[in-house]
Design a protein around this nucleic acid. Structure first.
Lengths: 240, 240
DNA sequence: ACAACCAAAAATATCTACATAATTCGAACT
DNA sequence: AGTTCGAATTATGTAGATATTTTTGGTTGT
């Protein structure tokens, strides 16, 4: 039987090659979605700004349909607001909304972290350690004297925080936390560059990591929440 | 002065008439969105079913753009899944997902209820009482011998549960709870008609109401959670 | 002169119809 | 049985028509 399947092996090699190329076969809508999301999170598209279809169409070099679909997707993510017959605009930000965001984030992540600590496997522990180590090796800013956002650090930071809560047992809750995390980055970026905190963020991460590995849920939660609250002070200052 | 503006008065009458008609001035996208959402929640569009644009276009008598936009909106609400180049389909359901949904709902609503009880105003108390009373006056089923879903009851039930947590202080958390509630209705509808529980749901609501008014958070949470768990048994039985 | 008001024009959002590209399905052929 | 090829189906994208909102510039009454 196995002798009869040499072509099959050959076929799967082809398939593997195709799969690795598949990334290129991406719809215009997906592209527009990701670029728009990135531009909003990074602050390049300012809060409250009108998102004119024609403008975006030219900017991203796609048709109207993909643009509208991407905007529709972003609407449910709360990055874009839509008013019937009146188009789309970038969601507004406010002191109040940020307070609410932070509060909600703490509530949800507390629950997720407690569940994760209670249920987490040994493999999960290793992932936490690894995520913390990798994060610690990446400089937060690209420059030493003034703050220049470092995309690698952002990615590693998100991965660390998501790993902490990864074993909470609810992909739904994880999705919510993910959404709130992205909302939070936006606020951080908006106020970001000027308020470059001098505190040792890496140290805070390691402390959280230790508490998690010791399965000390109360301490881990306390450290995580104050970690978020510390960051929030800088954001709040900027929002005035 | 007033004698000189009869046209103006006439004008504002016209405006008033237009405003009251404004409900009709709704985009095709919004219409399609609501009809699709309703059809999915009610189970009329079954889980996993392929959503062909052409089919929906004819069904709802709208163009392709509104249909795609509506589907995009529903994607983020987790009612519809989208795969690049392969279209849309109704989200699948499963025993596991339902378990996760229920668990997450309990976590989020517990937090929301505790915050609401801690912060709720006297006006909020009145709204809770009112919502409970109104709900108690509406029959759950349209028929006495067999179960026929009653849209009025559904609306009042949702209003009651949302009122309980309304003063949690986070519109973000409320939005999440709202989403999960709708997801839950869908599961209830899917398994619904046959498993018509005989237990006294109204009594359960009143008990929760009492605990809330007594500001007994621990009891209120316990009652709410077991209320949800009771319902879940019937759903689970059906999903088997 | 100045504010409120209106009407017409421009800008814009929305929708439809059609063109293109990808996938799916099935028959013919190893 | 499994593969290949091509027709049919379906998703996606584009261009242009239509409807709505916004802007503008003129008009009137104070």
């Amino acid at each position: 039987m196995s002798a009869k399947k040499p072509e099959n092996t050959g076929g799967s090699v082809v398939k593997l090659a195709l799969v690795s190329d598949t990334k290129a076969a991406e719809s215009m809508t997906s592209q527009a979605y990701m670029r728009l999301k990135q531009d909003i999170i990074s602050g390049h598209l300012q809060p409250g700004r009108k998102l004119k279809i024609e403008e975006l169409r030219r900017q991203y070099d796609v048709g109207t349909s993909p643009v509208r679909e991407a905007l529709s997707l972003l609407t449910s993510d709360h990055f874009v607001e839509r008013i019937d017959q009146r188009g789309f605009r970038v969601s507004n930000v406010s002191q109040d909304e940020f307070t609410e965001l932070l509060k909600t984030r703490c509530w949800l992540e507390e629950r997720a972290l407690r569940e994760s600590i209670a249920a987490g496997s040994a493999q999960w522990e290793e992932q936490v350690v690894l995520a913390n180590y990798r994060l610690s090796r990446i400089p937060r800013s690209q420059s030493d004297d003034h703050f220049v956002a470092n995309a690698d650090w952002e990615a590693a930071h998100k991965l660390f925080h998501m790993t902490l809560i990864a074993e909470c047992g609810s992909s739904i809750l994880l999705k919510f936390c993910d959404q709130l995390y992205d909302q939070n980055i936006r606020y951080r970026q908006l106020s970001g560059s000027t308020a470059y905190p001098k505190r040792d963020v890496a140290e805070e991460h390691s402390k959280i990591c230790d508490a998690v590995l010791a399965r000390n849920a109360d301490l881990a939660v306390e450290l995580l929440v104050s970690h978020y609250n510390n960051t929030s002070k800088f954001v709040r200052k900027e929002l005035g």
